[in-house]
């Protein structure tokens, strides 16, 4: 197998004196979709923050496409081709849809191309191009957020709790989009509370607990070991 697109080696991170990541090892193969599951407080979101450069690790390394990027700022990583869709509202509420889309061109794709891609995938966004993003429904906001993943052709896509607070139909729609992106060859690391939803589109899965990866492998394998580890329930 070639070099993994993302490799995390013995990563530690802490908030003050409380260590949240206690030696995380994780590799996402190029072109694969990996689901990262785990219970409340396992450290998943902290891991996303460290990988995306929003938080400094205390020790350990992060390799992106074979290059050690530990300590790089999140804007540098974004320009290197890492596309992070953080949990919660990941659009600028007081900017219009179109302005949100234009800002996505920082990743290197011309803004016209971003607009084209976004509007062809989500015609609804085109109808609302002059509306403030914050006045749209949660699902529409998440579509807007996903447009960045679609348009920027990232080396790695990092999705954090895409489905949070969204109606099932919309979650399904969003995951169809994830599947489309995956089919185009983009590597994806996907953190999800609804394991079943995430496993539908993933090639590999890993389970995090207590700040470590406690199981990883094919979705079926992971599910088998889950009874011993933790699923935190959301199967």
């Amino acid at each position: 197998m070639s070099i993994p697109i993302l490799e995390v080696v013995d990563l530690h991170a802490a908030y003050g004196r409380i260590e949240v990541l206690r030696g995380v090892d994780l590799a996402v193969p190029k072109g694969a979709v990996m689901a990262l599951l785990g219970p409340n407080g396992a450290g998943k979101s902290t891991l996303v923050k460290v990988i995306s450069g929003q938080k400094k690790p205390t020790s350990g390394d992060v390799h992106l496409g074979g290059v050690n990027v530990r300590g790089a700022g999140s804007e540098e990583l974004a320009r290197l081709g890492l596309c992070t869709v953080p949990e919660g509202r990941s659009v600028f509420p007081n900017l219009t849809v179109e302005e949100n889309l234009r800002l996505m061109s920082y990743a290197g794709v011309p803004s016209e191309a971003v607009l084209d891609t976004a509007y062809s995938y989500f015609p609804r966004l085109s109808e609302r191009r002059h509306q403030l993003a914050g006045t749209m429904s949660g699902g529409e906001q998440q579509m807007l957020a996903m447009s960045r993943a679609l348009a920027s052709d990232p080396a790695l896509l990092l999705l954090d709790e895409l489905s949070m607070g969204l109606a099932p139909l919309i979650v399904d729609e969003l995951y169809d989009t994830v599947a489309q992106i995956a089919a185009s060859g983009v590597s994806i690391l996907c953190i999800e509370q609804f394991a079943r939803t995430a496993l539908r589109v993933s090639d590999y899965a890993a389970v995090m607990s207590g700040g470590r990866i406690v199981a990883s492998g094919e979705p079926a394998e992971v599910l088998e070991t889950m009874s011993d580890v933790i699923l935190g329930g959301a199967a």
């Binding site: 003050g16 409380i18 785990g38 979101s45 996303v48 509370q193």
Partner: peptide, 13 residues
Amino acid sequence: PVGAASDATTVIP
């Protein structure tokens, strides 16, 4: 962690 906002993400048992 205190202040680890997004770590309050919860996977529900």
